[in-house]
Design a binder for these strands. Structure first.
Lengths: 132, 132
DNA sequence: CAGCAACATAGACGAGTGTCGATGTGATGG
DNA sequence: CCATCACATCGACACTCGTCTATGTTGCTG
């Protein structure tokens, strides 16, 4: 169960109920490591859906801000100012990250807290695991 | 020199002469793991330049086809047919992957062979290494 | 040298998307 | 009940980019 074998054990991610219904679970469920075998069109589309979510500077910074936070959660108000963008823009990007399964949303009162999903990073790292 | 410490040793990548001048080296040179600390705008831009290169189905499939090949190299003629795209389109995407430092180009005679750069995958995997 | 094959480059077009301002939706407080 | 705050949604605009056709470049061959 070491991190090096994560790629083999991760397909369970897509089936567990407590993991988000997003695409992060589907990464490991569909895709062997890149260097293992050529990707089919469907596998590529699935993986790309997640990669596109993080291939934007704003979203990548949002992701790192949430993941680096104590407890791995932050509300919108804490993320708007550091990036110098509008609140609707931040909300839009957060929704994309949620849909990709990279973070989760938890509304408590007036505030919406976005939380990290570390398993998603593990799945991504597994995809990029080098040959042998 | 284990894979788990690759993140720490990889900054050398950007300095070695035999590694491509692409952005793959810059990944590890600029960016700590995502979950370590919030990314600056510049760090995000650098990482995104590489992520955008692979966040396209065609390029992701090209990358996997090259990396999964024996010897880790392939010529354009071998990559055009399986994807069902035009030769100029394939050449275009290969150039993007080369510029990102994910593959290298080696022209031998009439053929152009594109080769894998495993260190680039290691650097990417390091970026997505989970907290602690 | 002529001709062909493999690949690169140039220009154009259409689809996708990051950002914005304006507005809608609940929850809280007086 | 009304005002306010935190956040989501909606349309619109500008820009990027994946793909194509057409053409240029280079190396091999008869």
């Amino acid at each position: 169960m070491a991190t090096t074998t994560a790629a083999a054990t991760l397909p369970v991610l897509g089936a567990t109920a407590d993991s988000p219904p997003g695409l992060a679970g589907a990464i490991s469920a569909c895709c062997t490591p890149l260097s293992r075998a050529p990707l089919s069109a469907e596998e590529a589309d699935t993986l790309v859906a997640v990669l596109k979510a993080i291939a934007v500077p704003t979203r990548l910074r949002l992701l790192s801000m949430i993941y680096a936070r104590d407890g791995g959660e932050a509300c919108v108000c804490e993320l708007t100012e550091p990036l110098g963008l509008t609140q609707p823009t931040i909300s839009h990007h957060l929704k994309v990250l949620v849909d990709a399964g990279l973070i989760t949303r938890d509304k408590r009162g007036v505030w919406a807290y976005y939380r990290a999903v570390p398993e998603a990073l593990v799945a991504l790292a597994a995809v990029f695991s080098p040959p042998q």
